[in-house]
Nucleic acid binder design. Structure first.
Length: 286
DNA sequence: AACCAGGGAAGAT
DNA sequence: ATCTTCCATGGT
C-alpha cells in the first residue's frame, strides 16, 4: 500500500466532478468523505485506486492510495481527472462568448474521463436512444451480470468475456437484439486486436473517427462521446445529442430545439474548447 | 396514453 | 445520396 499527495493550481472543483460521476450507479463514491474508488487495469492486472479530495476549489489537493503500480496509477489518474488541463484558460476563453454565464455557474468543473476505453465504448452503445435513467440501469445490470467486483468496485467485463456472450444473454437484461449484436461485435474486434485503444492515443480525432465509424453500432454520436470521454479530446460538440439540444433550448430560451444550422452558428466561437461547452451544457440540465 | 429518450442500421425513394 | 422506418422499453 502506497500513498501520494498531488496538488496543482486551481480552479478545479472536485465536488462538482464527483457529483457528475455519481450519476452512474456503478461508480463508488462517498461525497461526504470526498472519496472515489477507481477501477484500473494494467496488462490484465486489476487495481483499485482511492482518490480523496483534500484541497479547495482554488488550491486543489488530492490523496491517492493503492496497492502496487504506483507510477502507472498516478499517470493514469492524472489523465482520467485531467489534472494537467488549465481550466482557467478555458474559463477565460468563454468570458467573451454567449456561454459566459454558464461557465461562471459551473466554474472549475473538469472533464473527467471514463475509466477504460473499451468500457466507455460499450457504455455509449448501451446508452444509445434510451432515457438516461434506464440507460444507467442497463449498464449496471450488464456489469453486475458479467463484470468483476474488487474491493467494492465494479470492473466492466473484458473484451474476451463479452465476445463469448450470446445475444439471448444480453436480451435478458432488456437490451435490444440489435444492441446485443453491436456489443458482442465490438468485443470481438477488441479481443482480436483489430481494435487497439492504445494506438488511438497518437492519432488525430479524424483518424480515430474514421476507424470507429466503420464499426456496426457506432455512429457519429458514439464516436464523439468516445473522443471526448475516453480520449479526453477537447473540441467535440455532439450536435445530434438530445441533451445538448435541450440544454441549448433552455439556455437560449428557444421555443423549439435548435436546428443543425443554428447549432453550427452558436458553436463557432466556442472552438477549440467545444467539449467543455458540451460538458457544461449537459451539466445545466442534470 | 401518447410521446420522448445523451442513436444507428436498414429499407425506401 | 437523402429521407423514412424500425428497433425496444422505461420514464413522464
Amino acid at each position: 500500500m502506497w500513498e501520494e499527495k498531488v496538488s496543482f493550481s486551481g480552479p478545479y472543483d472536485f465536488d462538482l466532478a464527483l457529483s457528475r460521476l455519481a450519476l452512474d450507479p456503478l461508480h463508488c463514491i462517498d461525497t461526504e468523505k470526498r472519496l472515489v474508488k477507481i477501477p484500473l487495469s494494467f496488462n490484465n492486472k486489476k487495481i483499485v485506486a482511492e482518490v480523496i479530495g483534500t484541497g479547495t476549489l482554488e488550491n486543489p489537493e488530492f490523496l491517492i492510495r493503492a496497492d502496487n503500480e504506483k507510477e502507472k496509477t498516478l499517470e493514469r489518474l492524472s489523465e482520467i481527472f485531467q489534472w494537467d488541463v488549465k481550466l482557467i484558460q478555458i474559463h477565460e476563453h468563454f468570458q467573451t462568448t454567449e456561454l459566459k454565464t454558464l461557465f461562471n455557474e459551473h466554474y472549475g468543473t473538469p472533464l473527467v474521463l471514463e475509466f477504460d476505453p473499451f468500457s466507455s465504448l460499450l457504455k455509449s452503445i448501451i446508452h444509445q436512444q434510451v432515457n438516461l435513467k434506464f440507460a444507467f440501469t442497463l449498464t449496471e445490470r450488464f456489469v453486475k451480470s458479467f463484470g468483476d467486483e474488487l474491493d467494492g468496485v465494479w470492473f466492466y467485463p473484458s473484451p474476451e468475456k463479452v465476445a463469448q456472450l450470446s445475444v439471448e444473454q444480453l436480451r435478458e437484461l432488456q437490451l435490444s437484439g440489435r444492441k446485443a449484436e453491436y456489443v458482442i461485435g465490438i468485443a470481438e474486434l477488441a479481443a482480436s486486436g483489430q481494435l487497439d485503444f492504445e494506438k488511438m492515443k497518437s492519432k488525430s480525432d479524424a483518424e480515430v473517427a474514421q476507424e470507429l465509424i466503420k464499426i456496426r453500432g457506432v455512429g457519429p454520436w458514439t464516436v464523439e462521446n468516445f473522443l471526448m470521454f475516453a480520449l479526453g479530446r477537447p473540441n467535440l460538440f455532439p450536435m445530434g445529442d438530445i441533451g445538448i439540444q435541450n440544454a441549448l433550448k433552455k439556455y437560449f430560451n428557444l421555443d423549439e430545439k435548435p436546428t443543425p444550422a443554428q447549432m453550427e452558428k452558436y458553436k463557432e466561437p466556442w472552438s477549440p474548447y467545444l467539449s467543455y461547452a458540451s460538458l457544461y451544457l449537459w451539466r445545466s440540465i442534470e
